[in-house]
Simulated assay, not measured.
Amino acid sequence: MNIEAQQAIESLRLGIPPEGHVRYFTVGRFKEINTLTTTLQQPSSTALLLKANYGSGKSHLLKFIRETALKEGYAVSSVTLDAKSAVRFNRMDQIFGAICRGLEVPGVKQKGIASFFDWISSQSKKGQVASNWSQITNNNRWNYSRIIKSPSIFIALRAWVSGRANTNLIEDWLHQAGGYKATDLDRELIRKTQISFREELQVNGSLKWSSYTTKASLFNFKRDAYVQSWHVIQDLDTLARASKLRGLIILFDEFEDIVYNISNIEHQKVAFQNLFQFFFGNFFTGMSFFAITPGFVEKCKHRLMTKGCWDYDYSHFDALPTFEMSPLEESHLQELAEKIRQFHGIAYDLDTNTLTVEKSLKRIVVKAASTPLQDRTRYTICEVVKCLDQLLEDDEYS
């Protein structure tokens, strides 16, 4: 029996595309898929709302973009918004922390800032870095940076590269976007690693960092409307490109959380403003994708209007670039069923290319396609796997 195929079937039993095989289980929407693939092959500053009905594959498409982006040589971070679990879009420190936790680089299974920093450090030691690396590190002196905007991310990477710092502390600090005393960070990340570098770290001597006059401000991700949190996100893209990746792509799932789970209207307005920054601002120049359902823009406007925000500039919502996905047709669901059948046969070392299996799956797909369910695709996947499991149990494959 094939363990990898069995793991894929376990995922499909829940209606979830299996990790590592999302591209294989992507059917239909050929025009849309080609458009997205072309976008990923031509790096630019892009932000898109990915619009589809519930069950029409928003999350699946995000996973497809993730797999394709990693294959194309990008760093990727997947973030699921959840205001109830401290991933609020009005709090950019929480967002950048979630981005650090979700970071992935090609060919590495582990996620997080540790894998990202290890990749950069490895590329640096091998000399496989871009021409701007000397500007990032001031010709490997590491006393200041001409390009990196956030002193915190520079200090963290500098400490990581030194090999003298507590990497668990760095990882936890950035994953949680704070939570450590400035004096402890100064001792661990600056004083303890100073011996590895030729010159003293210059914070006030760098024009970009001249406003960080105290240890507290140096490591603060909330001050000045979360400006350093924004800078970290941009710096991650800069560092990805400097280490010969194509940039950073951020994928936001469950984005309607900003409508339903942020109750304070002032906080919600900040969340909307942060959304506009990704689309129209200059804080982040990489690619970002936001999964939404139809009516998202109208829901945002309605929320503001019901709270009496009549002087709000609603035109920003209408200007958001949107990528709309078409629903899967019966023929696409049939193709999906065939792919699941092949994996099921591989998983249990059986021949599924029989008339019994073909007829059974045909009935499942026809019924699913005619059922008025929002979550039709997931329902079809679950029913197909259930049918194949039952045929296996009853020994009716043949």
Score class of each variant (00 low, 15 high):
97 G>W: 08
129 V>D: 11
110 Q>D: 13
120 I>F: 06
118 D>W: 01
157 L>E: 00
177 A>T: 12
94 Q>C: 07
130 A>S: 14
172 D>S: 15
140 N>W: 11
112 G>V: 00
124 S>A: 15
111 K>M: 10
158 R>L: 00
98 A>L: 05
152 S>L: 14
166 N>W: 01
138 N>C: 11
170 I>L: 04
108 V>W: 00
109 K>R: 12
164 R>D: 08
162 S>C: 02
110 Q>A: 13
148 I>V: 14
116 F>V: 06
121 S>G: 13
99 I>Q: 08
124 S>R: 14
111 K>N: 09
114 A>H: 12
157 L>M: 04
147 I>D: 06
174 L>V: 04
143 N>R: 11
138 N>T: 14
159 A>C: 07
148 I>G: 06
150 S>R: 04
131 S>D: 13
122 S>A: 15
138 N>Q: 13
117 F>N: 05
173 W>A: 01
136 I>L: 12
121 S>W: 10
99 I>H: 10
172 D>W: 11
117 F>K: 07
139 N>V: 11
155 I>L: 07
145 S>Q: 08
170 I>T: 06
153 I>D: 00
172 D>I: 12
93 D>Q: 09
137 T>W: 07
149 K>Y: 04
142 W>C: 09
143 N>K: 11
97 G>C: 05
109 K>V: 04
154 F>E: 00
176 Q>S: 15
140 N>T: 10
143 N>G: 05
168 N>H: 10
117 F>I: 05
173 W>C: 03
143 N>S: 12
136 I>S: 09
118 D>S: 14
137 T>F: 09
97 G>V: 04
119 W>E: 03
120 I>P: 07
160 W>V: 02
162 S>I: 01
173 W>T: 05
175 H>N: 15
150 S>P: 02
129 V>A: 09
161 V>K: 14
141 R>Q: 13
121 S>R: 15
103 L>M: 06
120 I>Q: 07
158 R>H: 03
150 S>D: 02
157 L>D: 00
115 S>T: 10
178 G>Q: 07
132 N>S: 11
151 P>V: 07
129 V>C: 09
132 N>F: 12
153 I>T: 10
106 P>H: 00
106 P>G: 00
140 N>G: 10
102 G>L: 06
95 I>P: 00
145 S>P: 03
119 W>I: 01
129 V>L: 12
151 P>F: 03
111 K>L: 08
132 N>Y: 11
112 G>N: 05
133 W>I: 06
94 Q>V: 04
95 I>M: 02
154 F>L: 02
143 N>H: 14
117 F>C: 06
122 S>W: 09
168 N>K: 13
170 I>G: 02
170 I>S: 01
105 V>G: 03
135 Q>G: 14
155 I>D: 03
132 N>W: 11
167 T>S: 07
162 S>K: 05
170 I>C: 02
103 L>H: 03
115 S>C: 05
123 Q>L: 08
114 A>F: 10
106 P>V: 00
115 S>K: 06
130 A>W: 08
115 S>M: 04
145 S>G: 06
95 I>Y: 04
